[in-house]
């Protein structure tokens, strides 16, 4: 079996558009986070020196994704945190709301990692979270 692509980028004049894939919703969410950070840094090269447990709730899948990615940007701006990977993600549905729990691993920006550009914000523009042919596909545009 061919290994599934984690994510890919698409043309968008001013912003960055990506599609992230996953065999389940959790993988698609994790790959979205990588797509966002790979715009700024090579996440493969970032060392997993910092570990954070996060918990996000949302009314629907879209707002859950928005808040999850927004939380990561918050760590970027306030702590210079760059992502290496997301682990142990669990998305559950409770009383009509979604809850996401995950461990995020990464490091503070330093000279070892070449960082460039900026993701200013997550947007709802063209956002889509859907299961197609058994694969979860997340489409999103971030402002840069």
């Amino acid at each position: 079996m061919i290994e599934m692509k984690k994510y890919e980028y698409f043309e968008h004049t001013a912003d960055a558009k990506f599609k992230a894939y996953g065999k389940n919703l959790e993988d698609a969410f994790s790959n979205s986070a990588l797509a966002v950070f790979d715009i700024m840094v090579n996440t493969n090269l970032v060392e997993p020196k910092i570990k954070k447990e996060i918990k996000i709730t949302g009314k629907n899948k879209e707002s859950l994704l928005f808040d999850f990615l927004d939380e990561l940007l918050f760590f970027l701006d306030t702590e210079n945190f760059v992502l290496h990977k997301v682990e142990n993600m669990k998305i559950t549905r409770k009383k009509g709301a979604y809850e996401l729990k995950a461990t995020i691993l990464g490091d503070k920006i330093n000279k070892k990692y070449e960082v460039s550009g900026i993701v200013k914000a997550i947007t709802y523009n063209e956002m889509e979270i859907a299961k197609k042919d058994g694969v979860w596909v997340i489409t999103a545009v971030v402002d840069r």
Binding site: A121, T123, Y124, N125
Partner: peptide, 27 residues
């Protein structure tokens, strides 16, 4: 980041209050 956060949050607040119905584009 301050400006980015203000924009994001108010987009969100307006969506929560008014919804997307009738909007040609979410943004």
């Amino acid at each position: 980041g301050l400006g980015h956060q203000v924009a994001s949050e108010y987009i969100r607040k307006m969506e929560d209050k008014y919804g997307f119905a009738g909007l040609l584009d979410r943004e």
